[in-house]
Design a binder for these strands. Structure first.
Lengths: 241, 241
DNA sequence: CGTTAATTTGAGACCATTCAATTTCGGTGG
DNA sequence: CCACCGAAATTGAATGGTCTCAAATTAACG
C-alpha cells in the first residue's frame, strides 16, 4: 500500500462524518512524515515518553497496552491501518501507556508540531481528529464493560465481533473469513483472562460451530449466535458508513 | 455554588494547560445554559438518545454506566463538579452509554449547538475541550487495566486512590478526609466485583489500617500503602496543577 | 419511630487460575 | 526435502478467588 493511498483513505474516512473542504484535504495530504517498519512486538510508543511524532498505521496492526508490576499485561485496544495510534499522546504530551506492533507493521510518523498546527489552523480537521479520539474512548468504555462484567465466553465472543466489524471496514476485506493476527496469549491479555483459559474457551466456541480459528485465519460460522453470546451491539463503534 | 463560580473554575482549570485569551474566556462565560437538579440515580443521559445539550456538573457527582442484559451494571467513570459529563455524546450525536447522578446533583445544560459553534470559532477552547475528553479516555484505559488485571484488593485500592486525587482538586477539599458518595454496591459496579465481595475486601483494607470508610466519609490512614496495594500511579490523570 | 436502603455474615458452588507437561505449528538451515 | 527449533496451542489436575443465595444486622431518613 502506497502512502498516498493511506492518506487518501484517511481523508475518505474523515470526509464521511466531517465536512472537509478541498483545502482541508490538500493540507492533510501535504503533512510531512517519515515511514517506519516495525517487527512483531516492537514498541511504537513507550509509557512515560514525550511524544515528538504521531504514528498513522499504514500496514499491519498495533495495540495499546499497560504492564503491571507482576509482569502481567493488559491490552487496551487494537488498531488497524488508517488509524492514528497516538493522537492522545500527542495532545497530552507524555504517553501514559505503551503501543506495540502486533505483527510486522508499517507506520507514517508525522511530527507532533505539524499535526498541532494543522489542527489549530483548520477546525474541520481538528474536529475529525477529535472524533477519532472520541471513538477510541467509546471503545475503551466498551472494553471496561467487557472485562468487568462478562464471563470468558462472552468476552472473547465480543472481542471477535468487534474485530470483525473493524476489519470489514478495510479495503479488500469482506466475506466471513479474515486474516486474524492475534495469538491466544494476546486474546487473553485483551480480555483479562489467562492464555490457558482462553484456549479452552475458544475450543468451546469452535465446538459449538460459532467460529473457526487457526493459523492466523478466522472464519465466522454463525454471526448471529456469536453476537448473541458476546452481547454485541456495534453502536459504540460509531461507524457511519 | 453559584453558576458564575463554576464557569470561572472551568476557565481556570482549562487555562492551566491551554492558553486562553480574554475573548476566549468571555465567550465561555457567555455560553447559554439552563440549570437542572437531579436526584440520586436520576439519568442525565440515556444510551441511544440523541444529544441535544451537554451537562456541566455544578454540584454533586455523576457516573457513566452501561447495563447488560442480565441486569448487571458496569460503572465506567465517576465525575466531579466542573467536569463536562458528555462532551463525547455531544460530538458523536447519539449516546452510547448512560450517565446517572450519584447523589443529589446539579448541572448546567448547555445547548449542543452553542458548544459546537464555540469550538468551531475558537481553536483554543476546542483544544481545551478536546483535552478534557482525552483525559477521560486515559481514565477509561486505566479502568480497563484495573478490572482486567488486578485482584479485588488492588482494584478497590486503586479506585479509592483515583477518587481521592480527583477530589483533592476541588476547592475546599484537602486533608485526609473526604466526603465519599459511593455506596458499596456502586464501588462493586465500578470495579467489576459483587457487593458482597466488595464489602469483605473493604473490611480487609480497614483491618490493615489503610482506610476508614463509613457513613459517607472516607479517611486515608496510610496513603503510601494504599497506593502500593492499588499499584497506583497518577500519571494517567494528567493533572498539570 | 417505622420503613427502606445499605452493610454485614455464612456456607457452598463454580469459574478461572496456576503449574507443569505435551503436542502441534511455522519457519529455518543443512 | 527433511530435521530441527522456538513459539504457539493444547491438555490435566489441583487450587483458589470470587460469586451466589440467604439471612441478619445496622444505618439513613421522613
Amino acid at each position: 500500500m502506497f502512502e498516498s493511498e493511506v492518506f487518501a483513505l484517511l481523508v475518505q474516512r474523515w470526509g464521511k462524518r466531517s465536512k472537509l473542504t478541498a483545502d482541508d484535504c490538500s493540507a492533510i495530504l501535504a503533512l510531512p512524515f517519515t515511514r517506519e517498519v516495525y517487527t512483531k512486538d516492537a514498541y511504537l510508543v513507550r509509557e512515560g515518553q514525550e511524544a515528538r511524532e504521531c504514528a498513522l498505521l499504514l500496514r499491519g496492526f498495533a495495540f495499546r497496552q499497560k504492564l503491571l508490576r507482576d509482569g502481567s499485561r493488559q491490552i487496551i485496544s487494537i488498531h488497524v491501518p488508517t488509524e492514528f495510534v497516538d493522537l492522545q499522546n500527542s495532545l497530552l504530551r507524555t504517553a501514559d501507556h505503551n503501543v506495540q506492533s502486533l505483527n510486522r507493521s508499517e507506520a507514517a510518523l508525522i511530527p507532533r508540531a505539524a499535526l498541532m498546527e494543522l489542527a489549530a489552523a483548520r477546525p474541520n480537521v481538528a474536529m475529525a481528529m477529535w472524533i477519532d479520539t472520541l471513538i477510541d474512548a467509546s471503545i475503551f468504555r466498551e472494553w471496561v464493560v467487557n472485562v468487568g462484567r462478562r464471563d470468558a465466553r462472552a468476552r472473547i465472543a465480543h472481542l471477535l465481533c468487534e474485530l470483525v466489524c473493524r476489519f470489514r471496514e478495510l479495503p479488500g476485506e469482506d466475506g466471513d473469513t479474515y486474516e486474524f493476527p492475534l495469538t491466544q496469549e494476546q486474546i487473553a491479555d485483551a480480555t483479562g483472562l489467562t492464555a490457558v483459559h482462553t484456549n479452552r474457551t475458544l475450543q468451546s466456541l469452535r465446538k459449538e460451530g460459532l467460529i473457526q480459528l487457526s493459523s492466523g485465519s478466522l472464519t465466522i460460522l454463525d454471526w448471529d449466535r456469536l453476537r448473541e453470546v458476546g452481547e454485541f451491539d456495534e453502536l459504540y463503534l460509531h461507524h457511519t458508513g
